[in-house]
Design a protein around this nucleic acid. Structure first.
Lengths: 121, 121
DNA sequence: TCGATATTTCCAAGTTCGTAGAAATAATCT
DNA sequence: AGATTATTTCTACGAACTTGGAAATATCGA
C-alpha cells in the first residue's frame, strides 16, 4: 500500500461515525448490512451515512453490492489488511516490536528498550 | 486502547506532514531527532512543525525530552503498538485474518506485552 | 405504467484543520 | 546580565470536513 492510500484509509477511520460504521460492518462479517439498516442501527441521517460510506469506499475499506433495492455494504478485509501491513512496515521499528498479535514478528535480536522490569513503586 | 484515543491517533497519522514526521522518527529509532533537525529534514516551517508535533504528542505517538537547548522527539513505540492492537482487535474479522505479519492469530492479548502482568478482560 | 421503497446527489450552513509570520519563552554561552 | 540559539505560543485566514433537508435516481411490486 502506498503512503497516499494509507493516509486516505487512516483519515477514513479517524472519524467517530465512520469508525462506528466500519466496526459494525466488521462485526457483521462478509454478509454485510444494508445502508438503511446501518442508518437505523447507528441513528445517522441517510444523507450523512451515504457521505461516510463513500469515504470508506474511496478508502478501500468497504465494499458495496446490490440486493434488490438495498445496497449492502461489507468490510473489505483485504483493504484493512493492507493498512495494517503498511503501519507495521512503515511505522513500527524493525527491532522494536510493534506487532501485538504475534510475539516473534520478523527478527528479534536487537536490544529491548522496554526491558527493564520496573517493579511498582 | 479506547476508541476515543484510537481516533485521535488515527487522525494524527492521517496527514501527510505528520505521517512523514512520524516515519522519520520511527526510522531514527529511540535516539530521536531535534525539532530543528526535523524541520530542516522535512522543510517545514518551525511553527507548523511545532503544531504537528503537538498533535502527535497528544495522540501518544511520540515522546519529548530536552537535550540542552534542543527538544528531542522520538517515536513512542508503545503508543503505536496500542493503535495496531486496537485495529487488529476491533477492525479485523475474527475468522477472516487481517494480521499480515503472522498467519496464525494467537489469542491477541489486549495491550502492553512486556510490561507487568496483563489485566484480565 | 404507477406508486412505494431505498439511497444518493445537491446544496448550504457551521465547524475544524493546516499553515506560517511575529512575538514570546526557555536554555546556553561569554 | 546581555546576546544567541531553539521552540513554542499567538494570531489570522483560506481550505477541508461534517451534517442534514430537499430533490433526484434506481429498483421492485402490482
Amino acid at each position: 500500500m502506498e503512503t497516499r492510500q494509507a493516509i486516505v484509509a487512516l483519515g477514513a477511520l479517524a472519524q467517530e461515525t465512520r469508525l462506528d460504521i466500519f466496526r459494525l460492518l466488521v462485526r457483521r462479517g462478509p454478509d454485510g448490512l444494508a445502508a438503511g439498516a446501518i442508518a437505523e442501527s447507528l441513528e445517522v441521517a441517510p444523507a450523512t451515512l451515504s457521505f461516510h460510506l463513500q469515504q470508506l469506499m474511496h478508502a478501500g475499506l468497504i465494499e458495496q453490492r446490490r440486493a434488490s433495492r438495498s445496497l449492502i455494504y461489507s468490510a473489505n478485509f483485504a483493504g484493512m489488511n493492507g493498512l495494517v501491513a503498511y503501519l507495521t512496515e512503515n511505522c513500527c521499528g524493525q527491532g522494536v516490536s510493534c506487532a501485538p498479535v504475534c510475539a516473534a514478528p520478523v527478527e528479534a535480536e536487537t536490544e529491548a528498550p522496554p526491558a527493564r522490569r520496573a517493579r511498582r513503586r
